[in-house]
Design a protein around this nucleic acid. Structure first.
Length: 529
RNA sequence: GCCCCCAUGGUCUAGCGGCCUAGGACGUCACCCUUUCAAGGUGAAGAUCGCGGGUUCGAAUCCCGCUGGGGGUACCA
C-alpha cells in the first residue's frame, strides 16, 4: 500500500506533448457510456477505473474539480437487454467505482439515458442538414447491401456510394412528404485531412476521403453512436473522451461533427484493449470477461482493481500491490499504455491471494466468506455478514485459513471440517502415514485418544509436547504421527497446523472423530504390506 | 482489400540518447523454513529490446521501410 508505493516520484510529464490538464481547465468531466446490451465487461470496468482515477485522483491532485458521469447509451432498441443497465451498475458498485452523476442519481444534465434525450439529437441533425454538413438518405438497406457487395467484388473499400449526397432539394422534400423512410448521413469533406489528438498516442492524421458518409440519425429517429455521443458529450460538458480503441477509426468523424456544430473539442484518450491469452478480444470463452464471473469466482474487488492498474499502467515498474487509495495518489492518465495487453489469470490469482493473505483482516475475510458458505450450505441461511449466528465460528476458521485461501470460493471446502459436525466420507487408507504400517496408525490414534482424556485441545503446547513424545516412543517421525490425527480429524491430508486445527474444532468433536477413525481403520487390512 | 493503432523474456511491465554486460513482477525450476498444504525467504533458467536500414561519437530509446499482432470497415455500440 502506501508504504511500498514509490512516493518520491509522480510522473506527470506529457508523453506525446499533450497536456491532459491545461492550466485554464477548472473541471475534469469524464464519462462511461455503456450500451445496455450485456454485462459489465472487464475492459469496461478497467476503463471506469481509469476514469475515476483521472477525475477523482489526478485532477483533484492538480487542484481541479473532477467529475465522473455514468450515461446509458440505449439507442439500439434491437440489442437492448432488460436489466442490463442495472447489472452494469451493480458491477460498478461491487468494485467500489462510484459516479457523481448518472441515471439513478441524476445531476445537472439529466436525464442520463439517451432514449430520453432524443430531441437533442434530432435538433443537432437538423442543424447539420441546415448548414450543409449532413443530408437525408433514402437508400434502402437492400440497395446499401448491393452497393457494398459490388464494391467488394471490384476490390474497393466496401461502403456507401454517396448516392443521396447531392439529391435536389425538391426531390428530398417530395420524398419526405411522401413519408419515405430515411436516415441522416454526415457529409464528410471529400478533400483535406482531419487530425485527432490522442492523449496516449499523440496526433493521428486521416485523409478525409477515406472516411465514409456515415449514418448519424437512424430511420427510427434514434441517433447512432456518432451523433449521440458527440451531442451528449458536448451538452454534459465532457472534457476528456475516454473510450475503447475500437473508436479510433471513427474519431475523425467525431472531430468533424464537433466542427460542423461549432462546438469546442474535448480531448481524446483511447484506452488500450485487453486481449485474451489466445489472442483477440477477451471474451466469455477466452479467459472470462464479465465482472460478475469474477465476483462469483471468489475474487476481491480490491484485487481486481489492483490488477487493472497493473494491466496497462504502472507507477514505477516495481510496485505491485496498490490499494485504490494508492492509485488515487499516483495515477496519471499519460502513463497508461497505448499498446494492448493480454489478460493473465495467473497474475490476477496471485494478487487475489496477496490481498486475502496479507492485506485484509481476519474479520474482513470472515465477513466476505459468509455468503459463499451460505450458498454452499456449509452454514445455515442467515445474514450474509458479521451478524450471522455462526460468525464467530467462521472467524475462528478464517484465522487459520487466511494464508491458504486463494479464492473465496474455496472457503466452503476448506472450512467444512471446522463448521460442520459430520465429516464427509474419506478413504480410511489415508489414516496410515507414509512409510508406516496400518497397525501403527491404529497405535497413534489409540494413543492420541487416551491423551485427550488428560489434555484438552485448548492447551496446544502440552498436546504438542505429548504427541512428540509418543511419536518418539513408537519410532515415528512427528510428521507421521501428526498425519494420522490430521486425517482422523479433518478427513484430508492437508490442513492448517495440527494443534490450532484441533483447538478450533474443539475437544468433543476431536474425540468423536478419532473414535470414528479408529472404527474406520478396522476396515483396513492391518497386515504389513 | 482499404484505413488506423501497437511492438522490451511465455505474460504484465521499468526504460524518454550514454547510468542497460536491459531492472521488477507473475509463471517455471531448485534450495531454505517446516507437522501436511500454503504463506514466507534465497537463488536459477528465460530477452542478440520483432527484422532491416538510417541519424548520432554513442540507440531498447529518434527517423524510414518491412514483418508480425490487433482494431475498424453496419440504420451495433
Amino acid at each position: 500500500m502506501t508504504d511500498n508505493a514509490a512516493t518520491d516520484r509522480t510522473p506527470t510529464q506529457p508523453v506525446h506533448g499533450v497536456n491532459a490538464l491545461p492550466p485554464d481547465l477548472e473541471e475534469v468531466r469524464v464519462r462511461f457510456a455503456p450500451s445496455p446490451t450485456g454485462s459489465l465487461h472487464i475492459g469496461g470496468a478497467r476503463l471506469v477505473m481509469y476514469n475515476v482515477l483521472f477525475a477523482h485522483g489526478q485532477a483533484k491532485r492538480a487542484g481541479k474539480k473532477g467529475t465522473f458521469i455514468l450515461r446509458i447509451e440505449d439507442t439500439d432498441q434491437k440489442r437492448f437487454v432488460e436489466g442490463s443497465a442495472e447489472g452494469l451498475m451493480d458491477g460498478l458498485h461491487w468494485l467500489g467505482l462510484e459516479w457523481d452523476e448518472g441515471p439513478d442519481i441524476g445531476g445537472p444534465y439529466a436525464p442520463y439515458v439517451q432514449s430520453e434525450r432524443t430531441h437533442h439529437y434530432k435538433e443537432a441533425a437538423e442543424r447539420l442538414i441546415a448548414n450543409g454538413h449532413a443530408y437525408r438518405c433514402f437508400c434502402s438497406p437492400e440497395r446499401l447491401k448491393a452497393v457494398r457487395e459490388d464494391f467488394q467484388k471490384r476490390g474497393l473499400p466496401p461502403g456507401y456510394d454517396r448516392h443521396c449526397r447531392d439529391l435536389p432539394e425538391a426531390e428530398v422534400t417530395s420524398r419526405l412528404d411522401a413519408g419515405e423512410s430515411q436516415v441522416v448521413r454526415f457529409r464528410m469533406p471529400l478533400t483535406g485531412e482531419t487530425r485527432v489528438v490522442d492523449l496516449l498516442r499523440g496526433e493521428i492524421v486521416y485523409q478525409n476521403d477515406t472516411i465514409e458518409d456515415l449514418v448519424i440519425l437512424k430511420s427510427d429517429g434514434f441517433p447512432t453512436y456518432h451523433l449521440g455521443a458527440v451531442v451528449d458529450d458536448h451538452e454534459m460538458k465532457i472534457t476528456h473522451i475516454t473510450r475503447g480503441p475500437e473508436w479510433i477509426p471513427t474519431a475523425p468523424l467525431h472531430v468533424q461533427i464537433y466542427k460542423a456544430l461549432g462546438w469546442d473539442m474535448p480531448m481524446f484518450a483511447h484506452m488500450p484493449l485487453i486481449l485474451a491469452p489466445t489472442g483477440g478480444k477477451l471474451s466469455k470463452r477466452h479467459g472470462g470477461a464479465s465482472v460478475r464471473d469474477f465476483q462469483e469466482g471468489g475474487y476481491l474487488p480490491e484485487a481486481m482493481l489492483n490488477y487493472f492498474a497493473l494491466l496497462g499502467w504502472s507507477l514505477d515498474g516495481k510496485t505491485e500491490i496498490y490499494s485504490f487509495d494508492d492509485l488515487l495518489q499516483h495515477f496519471t492518465i499519460e502513463r497508461v499504455q497505448a499498446s494492448p495487453s493480454t489478460f493473465d489469470r495467473d497474475k490476477l490469482d496471485w494478487l487475489n491471494q496477496q490481498w486475502i493473505n496479507h492485506r485484509i483482516t481476519v474479520d474482513d475475510l470472515a465477513t466476505r466468506v459468509v455468503p459463499f458458505l451460505i450458498a454452499a450450505g456449509t452454514i445455515e441461511d442467515g445474514p450474509a455478514g458479521p451478524s450471522h449466528p455462526r460468525f464467530a465460528d467462521v472467524k475462528a476458521a478464517a484465522a487459520l485459513l487466511k494464508d491458504r485461501i486463494k479464492h473465496l470460493t474455496e472457503a466452503p471446502d476448506l472450512m467444512s471440517f471446522f463448521l460442520r459436525d459430520e465429516l464427509p466420507p474419506y478413504d480410511p487408507a489415508l489414516l496410515v502415514p507414509k512409510k508406516a504400517e496400518p497397525v501403527q496408525a491404529q497405535q497413534v490414534l489409540d494413543a492420541a485418544r487416551r491423551t485427550l482424556d488428560e489434555i484438552d485441545v485448548a492447551d496446544e503446547e502440552a498436546l504438542d509436547a505429548r504427541f512428540r513424545e509418543l511419536a518418539a516412543g513408537m519410532d515415528l517421525k512427528p510428521g507421521q504421527f501428526f498425519m494420522a490425527i490430521r486425517v482422523a480429524v479433518t478427513g484430508r491430508t492437508q490442513s492448517p497446523g495440527l494443534f490450532e486445527t484441533l483447538r478450533v474444532i474443539g475437544q468433543d468433536r476431536v474425540i468423536q472423530r478419532i473414535d470414528q477413525a479408529i472404527e474406520k481403520l478396522k476396515t483396513v487390512d492391518l497386515r504389513p504390506a
